[in-house]
Structures are given as structure tokens and as C-alpha cells.
Write a protein that binds this DNA or RNA. Structure first.
Lengths: 146, 146
DNA sequence: GGCAAAGTTTAGCATTGGCTAAACTATATG
DNA sequence: CATATAGTTTAGCCAATGCTAAACTTTGCC
């Protein structure tokens, strides 16, 4: 070979980031669903498939299919034609998502980002921030009025 | 119906965020690929499939398949068994990714996040920040030494 | 020049997450 | 209490992204 010298070390280091992104994406959808379901339960007493579909902007059938996976994963329970409930694990995941969401959104607002943008961006960012970064954001928030 | 009153408005507003996240995910992979290919070309003069696979932490075959899509999308060019090149659009996308990456990573460092964490988190965050948030980060960076 | 090793591609499979259209159930109300 | 409508599920499709194993090129080197 000609050009292939001394890789591997940096490669392995960098690939860690991408591996985590792929892992994050897998839990991201589940997180969005349970957080949304938790919100619906709190807001209106129950979560129905149609509401979830509407808020996520996907088709009903997609929600049904995804809920099946979430049920297999032990995050929600549901009987045919009835409302959706969260399991203990489901609530835990939802609460964690809300916690992160609140920090990130509040942080963006404190940074001077407009409310609408903060809401949209925080939704995307929340699943990719480590606890360390969250702590840094919370620290900033504490100092700069949150 | 019993419980279904006054939704739709909030629903549509919220779904916008999720729609954007899904759209972001579609371009995210392409962005990661071209950014990585650009880095490899700059670092070592050429980008080979194996290097891309190694740094992304995926199998070789996955890279081949993805590159085919990127080629269809007009971002890269490649002949069988040869190195990978970026098209004009490919370079543009890569440069844009680098620009965002630099701002986000620098910002996290300025926030007080450790270097290793900043590197990993910025990789995940860079595809989900709007231009407005980037400007806010750049502003912060300008004031707090970057 | 030919061979072994490194690199690359092909083939074939699985899962996720999206869709539409059609079938089915629950329920509000006339 | 029958039925129309709203809500839900099923069936069947597609594209993207991952994998392994096997086949095929390239190339460094003897």
C-alpha cells in the first residue's frame, strides 16, 4: 500500500462520536413519543393515537406501528382502540426528556434566541447533549437569569 | 366524541419542529460523509472508502451503498476501486458543515465544556442548530474569547 | 510476471420509519 | 337503538441505513 499509514487511532476516537449519534437517533424517536404522550396525558387526561400523529406530523398508521415497538420495549401499554399509557420506564424517559428540553430551551432563550427558534432548535438538540453540556447550560442559566 | 376539543392549532405548530428534525436527519448523514471526505482529502490527499468506514465506525459495504446515494444526489463522484471526490455541491455542503461545527464546538468550549465532550456533542448538535442560534453562539464566542 | 494482502464491491438480509387505502370499532346523537 | 362519523388498525408498499459473507480488483513485492 501507498498512502495508508498511521490511521486507526484517530479513526477510533472519531468514530465514537458517530456511533453515539447513531445510538442517539435510535432512542430519539422513543423519547419524542413518550414525552408527547406524557404531555397529552397531563394536558387532557389521556393520549390518543390521533393526537400523537397530529402533533408529530406523521400518519396515523405510523404511530400505530411505532407504538407497537414502544410496547415491545416496555415504554407504553395500550389495548386496541383505547388510549395510550406510559409504563414506569416510559414515565422515567419522558421526565428525563422534559428535563433536558427545559434546560436547552431555557438556555437558548437566555442566549438571546427568539422563542419560536428556541422551541424548534431545542427539540432537535435535546437528544444530543451530554450531561456535562447540560450542566454547563444550567450553570449559564443560573448566572444569566433563567 | 368526548374529549376531543380545540386541537389542531397547537398541533400544527408543534409538528413543525418534528418535521424539521426528520428533514435534518435526512441531510445529516450526507453532511457527515462529505465533511469527513473533505477532511480526508485535506489531510492525506485522497479519501478512500475504508478510511471513511473506519472513521464513521460502519462497515465497508455500508459506505459503498451510501456513496452510491450521494453520487446520485450529485455530492460526490467515484469510479469503481478508486478514491472518492467531492463535486462543487459536495464541497459547499462540507464547508457549511465545517463552519457550523467550528462554531458549535468553539461555543461549547467557551461555555466550559471539556474538549472531548465538546467534540462529541458538537458532532450531534451541528445538524440541528438554526442560523439564528449559530449567530447567537458566534456572538457569545466573540464576547467570551474564542 | 505472479501472488498475497489490502481494499472494494456485490449479494442478500434485517430493521426502522414513513406512506396510502381499505377495513374495522366505538360512540354521539337523532 | 341505528347509524354516521371519528378514530383506529391492518395490509402492503417504499426508502434508508445498517450488517455479514463471498467475490473481485489493485498493488506491493519477491
Amino acid at each position: 500500500m501507498k498512502l495508508t499509514r498511521k490511521r486507526g487511532q484517530t479513526a477510533k476516537l472519531r468514530s465514537a462520536a458517530f456511533r453515539r449519534i447513531r445510538a442517539d437517533h435510535q432512542t430519539e424517536l422513543a423519547g419524542d413519543y413518550v414525552e408527547l404522550i406524557a404531555d397529552l396525558i397531563d394536558e387532557r387526561g389521556e393520549a390518543r393515537g390521533t393526537d400523537v400523529a397530529m402533533r408529530l406530523g406523521v400518519a396515523n398508521a405510523t404511530v400505530v406501528k411505532t407504538l407497537k415497538r414502544l410496547q415491545d420495549a416496555g415504554l407504553v401499554t395500550q389495548e386496541p382502540y383505547r388510549a395510550i399509557f406510559l409504563t414506569g420506564d416510559g414515565w422515567k424517559l419522558a421526565e428525563d426528556g422534559r428535563r433536558k428540553h427545559k434546560i436547552v430551551e431555557g438556555f437558548l432563550l437566555a442566549l438571546g434566541v427568539a422563542a419560536a427558534t428556541a422551541r424548534i432548535d431545542s427539540e432537535g438538540i435535546e437528544h444530543h447533549v451530554s450531561e456535562e453540556t447540560l450542566r454547563a447550560m444550567a450553570r449559564f442559566l443560573a448566572r444569566n437569569g433563567g
